Deep mutational scan, measured.
Amino acid sequence: KELVLALYDYQEKSPREVTMKKGDILTLLNSTNKDWWKVEVNGRQGAVPAAYVKKL
């Protein structure tokens, strides 16, 4: 499985998103959308802005 690093804090704004903190390591589930990537963090799945994460 592919991992990404959170470059910034992000507070979810809808139920389809997830909150992450700078430095979090997230499991990347889907990166086909260039703006929003689906990730899993702390057992929750949701979208985060692609510009806020970097593939490891």
Rank of each mutant, 00 (worst) to 15 (best):
K1Y: 13
K1P: 13
E2M: 13
E2A: 11
L3K: 11
L3G: 03
L3S: 08
V4N: 00
V4H: 02
A6L: 04
A6N: 00
L7Y: 04
L7T: 05
Y8T: 08
Y8W: 11
D9C: 06
D9F: 05
Y10L: 01
Y10H: 03
Y10M: 00
Y10W: 10
Q11H: 13
E12V: 06
E12S: 15
E12K: 14
K13P: 05
K13D: 06
S14T: 12
P15D: 13
R16F: 15
R16M: 14
R16Q: 14
R16A: 14
E17P: 05
E17Q: 10
E17L: 05
E17D: 06
E17H: 08
V18S: 02
V18C: 09
V18F: 15
V18I: 14
V18Y: 04
T19V: 04
T19S: 15
M20H: 01
M20Q: 01
K21R: 12
K21H: 11
K21L: 08
K22Q: 10
G23K: 02
D24L: 04
I25N: 02
L26M: 14
L26V: 07
T27R: 11
T27D: 05
L28H: 01
L29K: 05
N30Y: 07
N30H: 09
N30S: 13
S31H: 10
S31P: 09
T32Q: 12
N33M: 08
N33Q: 10
N33R: 09
K34W: 08
D35I: 14
W36Y: 08
W36R: 03
W36H: 03
W37S: 02
W37A: 04
K38G: 08
K38A: 12
K38V: 15
K38H: 15
V39T: 01
V39G: 00
E40P: 00
E40S: 09
E40C: 12
E40Q: 08
V41Y: 11
V41K: 14
N42Q: 09
N42Y: 09
N42K: 09
R44C: 08
R44I: 09
R44D: 04
Q45P: 07
Q45G: 07
G46H: 05
G46E: 04
A47F: 15
A47M: 15
A47H: 15
A47L: 15
A47Y: 15
V48Y: 01
V48Q: 00
V48I: 10
P49C: 06
P49H: 03
A50N: 02
A51P: 08
A51I: 11
Y52N: 06
Y52K: 07
Y52G: 06
V53R: 00
V53H: 01
K55H: 09
L56S: 03
